[in-house]
Design a protein around this nucleic acid. Sequence first.
DNA 1: TGGGATTTGTTCGTATGTATT
DNA 2: GAATACATACGAACAAATCCC
Lengths: 246, 246
Amino acid sequence: MPRTKRKAPAASQAANDANGSAGPVSRADTVYRGIRRAIIEQALGPSTKLPEDLIGERFGVSRTVVRAALTRLAAEGLVELRLNKGATVARPSLEEAHDVFDIRRSLERLVVARLAGRLTPGGAARLDAHVAAEEKAKGKDGPESIRLAGEFHVLLAELTGNVILSRYVGELISRSSLILALYGRPHSSDCAVAEHREIIDALVRGDTAGVERLMDHHLDAVIGRALIAPAPDRDIRDILSAYAAE
Amino acid sequence: MPRTKRKAPAASQAANDANGSAGPVSRADTVYRGIRRAIIEQALGPSTKLPEDLIGERFGVSRTVVRAALTRLAAEGLVELRLNKGATVARPSLEEAHDVFDIRRSLERLVVARLAGRLTPGGAARLDAHVAAEEKAKGKDGPESIRLAGEFHVLLAELTGNVILSRYVGELISRSSLILALYGRPHSSDCAVAEHREIIDALVRGDTAGVERLMDHHLDAVIGRALIAPAPDRDIRDILSAYAAE
DNA sequence: TGGGATTTGTTCGTATGTATT
DNA sequence: GAATACATACGAACAAATCCC
């Protein structure tokens, strides 16, 4: 009798509703977001194996649903999917790391150029609020801080209204998390909140050239934290249970 | 007796091997590539419904495999996936169209900047060969021509060696196919082969500023063919059979 | 509006492939 | 290296939602 360790029909009918805001959400979405967040917050490190059975158990869904989520994550570059060998958290090479930051420079410069002087009051307010949240989370130095630092850049991209641009920036940001986990210092990942403030100021002033320069410097600083350091391996089981409950 | 029209166990065990070059290929890959090509060559127009059963029948695979392919295509933006309502070929809004070309400008400028003066002899040869193929296919004015025009840009991106960059450019190019199908003139989609030649020349000369200007002009010309025109609807069945056999 | 046909979402069994001893 | 254990790839059936008349 093979693989009899599957759980009962999965009592997760209460996992519906209460989603962010837009449109109905499939169950695969829930799993996708959970794993994505776990990777971004560096709870799941590069090369961590992601067995379908285990994940399905933790999230209360079947392997089919997990597969759909893993497929999406693979398309996004966060997960590697080798035929017949299952999924692992991606382990970007040093070369890929350079590639990521290369494109980030180009696209994030486009973002601030589009935004300079064109920031709505509402947009500026959202940015201010976000930076305030970053400041608040700074002391704790936990995964929250890592995520917020990246989300500042995603928020900027979203404010351009260009959905494709924000999707790409979002992907690049999450890959940056992986890169920092692999090659960066242990947890110096806070993105220099002061620099974020400077960028907002320059955007409000409408100083296009200045904000492009600031963003370049800021990214240089981020890249500067790309040093050699091995990543420890932890047990997936404990980690996932924290993310299964959204 | 619901849905009894499914075919026999599907005798497609010979669908393995003989793939392009790199790594083993899942069956979902085959379906993915087939549908993708059909969309890029404008055989499947925007909003065309993509029923899982029908596609699976044509490709000789089950719905599970089709779903995986559709999930990937959706992540890429070529397909829209609405919950409980199935998949359709994406129909980019005019706004999205502008977004696509906006990012194309930025990324393709990065491509040629990276390439200027750094083109290997092999790379230049591949570009020359490609343009020759474009020239040859130009008379026929068929789907081949559409695909080749886009692949020139993808080839440029690939020559940078930045795999993420080439993935993004590839996605943007295929979306451009959709945009041209929607808003462009019927079939004036050949990308001005002469302009491609000029770009190659400038790259070989190492004329960075010149090639950026040329690429901008070239993209302007492409964007210039974005006019209002409705797209006719055709029957998926006939179309897919041509693409099922690779 | 309603009911049947159709399509999608999901589960789960089986076959096949990979790792391990 | 063969046998065993295990994980993945795929398919068929079932349940639920949607569509269409």
